[in-house]
């Protein structure tokens, strides 16, 4: 099977509503090997819902989602063994130590205990986390927790990575390391689905950018293609224009006025 031609992820006609409102309105999307997708959009645009549907966390959608060529509605969870996930909220069993947690996750992905432990230790050491490897995750700083999440998502050498704000809390040096890791993984044929609100990063690392607003795809293409279609120079300004947001200066001005207004706030 030549994965280079077949899409790794294929979404067609995806609709989703939560009790009263539509979150996704007919998403069509095909993602291929080796792509780094920058998945962007304002809060509540439906980004995490899409990802959660693909992970089988949310059910009750309309449309089809095929991952590795298989419809995920079948209920077979084995495809998840080839996916890594870094959720937006750093939810972990944080009363465990990193060693315990990562070994546990590795084993859930089907690695033997010793292999999971050894690999977790090696990856953590590379991220400069050897010192706290046997400490409880609850005592970690935000950046350290993020590193644990990153390692836990890659332990099993997945073919697709879903990353939701994967750089949050990381220091500048770690950011460089992780960006490089992602680029290298993509070059080796892995697919990366990268959601973030930090446009500079998305602009730099994504090979393809997808903008979602109000549950619909507003733009899809490389950064260069998006630039061609508009007059603005940065992804941030393209984002602002596509989501119809232009009064940031006024709002900022009013905000500062309110802050400095003593009692009025």
């Amino acid at each position: 099977m030549n994965l280079g031609e077949e899409p790794v992820i294929e979404i067609s006609g995806l609709w989703m509503n939560y009790s009263d409102r539509m979150v996704l309105r007919g998403i069509d999307l095909a993602v291929y090997r080796g792509q780094i997708i920058g998945y962007i959009g304002p809060n509540g645009a439906g980004k995490s819902t899409t990802v959660k549907i693909m992970l089988g966390l949310v059910e009750g959608y309309n449309g089809t989602v095929r991952i590795f060529g298989k419809d995920i509605k079948s209920g077979d969870a084995t495809y998840k063994g080839r996916i890594g996930y870094v959720p937006e909220v750093a939810e972990m069993y944080d009363s465990l130590t990193a060693r315990e947690y990562l070994t546990f996750i590795g084993e859930l992905y089907g690695l033997p205990h010793e292999a999971a432990e050894a690999k977790a230790r090696r990856l953590m050491a590379l991220l400069d986390m050897e010192r706290v490897y046997d400490k409880r995750i609850a005592s970690y700083s935000k950046g350290m927790k993020q590193k644990v999440l990153l390692v836990s998502s890659m332990l099993h050498d997945p073919d697709i990575l879903f990353l939701d704000e994967p750089l949050s809390g990381l220091d500048a040096n770690s950011v460089m390391v992780v960006k490089e890791i992602l680029a290298t993984l993509a070059a080796k044929g892995k697919t990366i689905f990268y959601s973030s609100h930090i446009m500079d990063v998305v602009e730099k690392i994504s090979s393809r950018i997808i903008l979602l607003d109000g549950g619909e795809l507003m733009a899809d293409g490389t950064f260069a293609e998006l630039q061609e279609r508009s007059t603005e120079g940065t992804l941030e300004s393209i984002f602002n224009r596509l989501t119809g947001f232009d009064q940031y200066r006024d709002i900022a001005g009013e905000f500062v006025a309110a802050v400095m207004d003593g009692e009025a706030g």
């Binding site: 966390l57 969870a77 084995t78 495809y79 063994g81 996750i105």
Partner: peptide
Amino acid sequence: LREKNILHTKPIDK
């Protein structure tokens, strides 16, 4: 609900 994110994203059947 916490285990949703952690366990349900892994290849484990329901």
